[in-house]
Design a protein around this nucleic acid. Structure first.
Lengths: 224, 224
DNA sequence: ATTGCAAATGGACAAACGTCCATTTAACAT
DNA sequence: ATGTTAAATGGACGTTTGTCCATTTGCAAT
């Protein structure tokens, strides 16, 4: 009987196939990180992957699809790190905020390769809808996490207009972290991870003095 | 006598020449804003400028030099706006900070065209030294202005470690403004200029409650 | 051992790229 | 009015681009 390849990845055949697909995505990310999107040609990518020209057409149809797969992969890296730190953090709102800040500034995402890739795609974001969507780490998912952490703290603290302030604090924190990434992009050598962390907490502590100091969340009861 | 063209721009000849040079730079910026750097080809640029192919070679030797001239122009736009608002502002440190924030969020720089151009070049910044340098509006010049405004306020307020806090506040404000630009790039329709302003002042007010509220600098004695 | 077929190869292809230059245009000096 | 020369033109050039496909490779079922 003619079994149409079912791509389960169980047999050696499709394992090798999948590995080559991965190699293309990784080579693309390397290329984008080092040369930028404009200079990331098919020839350059396949040379780095050590594969043949035709592979891109076989796995992705077009170069644009390959770029799309690459930015999807970059997006995963970010959310994986965030998920890990959120799981490690305790349940209190201040610990959630603490985890968000530390994951954003962690070496797993805030490194030369990742930030180069990130801003390369962002530079092309205005025209390509997919790029814009996937490049926006600070999307609704992220916003909701932060907002729902700020709100109970502000309410308990008795801040007037807690809802409005919570939204402002959320947008401010997101913008601040984004700006830190940018600073890293332009001055990777001078960048000081601890200082960036301290700055973020200083700003937040101004709005939530009961919950934060410049050193991080207070009254930590972290389980782990 | 053989007068070698002295490019003073006094005669009609070199006036026209200069106008064409300008047209090329402007067409390049339009192109970069709408298509990104990757898709900004020589053909596309000269079509928009309404000039002939050879003009780029005549005026800029190579396409790379044209791009360099374009980012230099973009840089001017930013600093011109900042200079105007700083001149309009009063002499007090809180008014200086106020001017910096408002110029960064002003419609003259925070608009679709300009921000698109800005992030397009930034995406290529890692590899091209010129791009990195010119794309960094928040360079030493800007840093010094902000730092020297924060410092006397923190000292007068009696904040411990005023120097350290001033540096943190400077880096924080710069990062925050940068993050606002990014937010505008990704969500130009949803972006709220007034809210962005309020968020910035809220964060600063946390460190300098005597000088700022969420609405801006207090005790304004602005001359004009 | 033989066969079948998905996976992978690398050269061919037209299109598009940046650069260059022989020619034309038109502003200025005479 | 005429000659001179800088400015501007647009087609030609050799590369490089992304895509495609006839061929080869090698895993797995027979």
């Amino acid at each position: 009987m003619n079994k149409i390849s079912d791509n389960r990845g169980s047999d050696r055949r499709s394992q090798l196939r999948e590995r080559n697909r991965e190699a293309l995505v990784e080579a693309t990310l390397d290329c984008v990180a080092e040369l930028g999107i404009a200079r990331s040609s098919v020839s350059e990518i396949i040379a780095r992957a050590g594969l043949s020209r035709g592979m891109i057409h076989l796995h992705f149809e077009t170069k644009d699809n390959l770029l799309k797969a690459a930015i999807e992969r970059a997006n995963e890296i970010y959310y994986d790190e965030l998920a890990v730190l959120l799981r490690q953090a305790g349940p209190s709102p201040q610990e959630t905020i603490d985890a968000v800040i530390r994951s954003d500034l962690s070496e797993n995402v805030l490194n030369r390769r990742y930030i180069s890739i990130w801003y390369a795609f962002r530079g092309e974001a205005r025209e390509r809808e997919v790029f814009r969507r996937l490049n926006d780490t600070r999307d609704e998912r992220m916003r909701t996490i932060i907002l729902e952490a700020f709100l109970p703290m502000l309410r308990e603290q008795g801040t007037p207009d807690a809802e409005l302030v919570a939204r402002d604090a959320t947008d401010g924190l997101i913008a601040l972290l984004e700006g830190m990434w940018n600073d890293y992009l332009l001055h990777p050598d001078a960048f000081d991870r601890d200082q960036a962390c301290r700055v973020a907490f200083r700003f937040i502590a101004g709005l939530l003095p009961d919950y934060f100091t410049f050193a991080g969340a207070t009254h930590k009861v972290s389980a782990k």
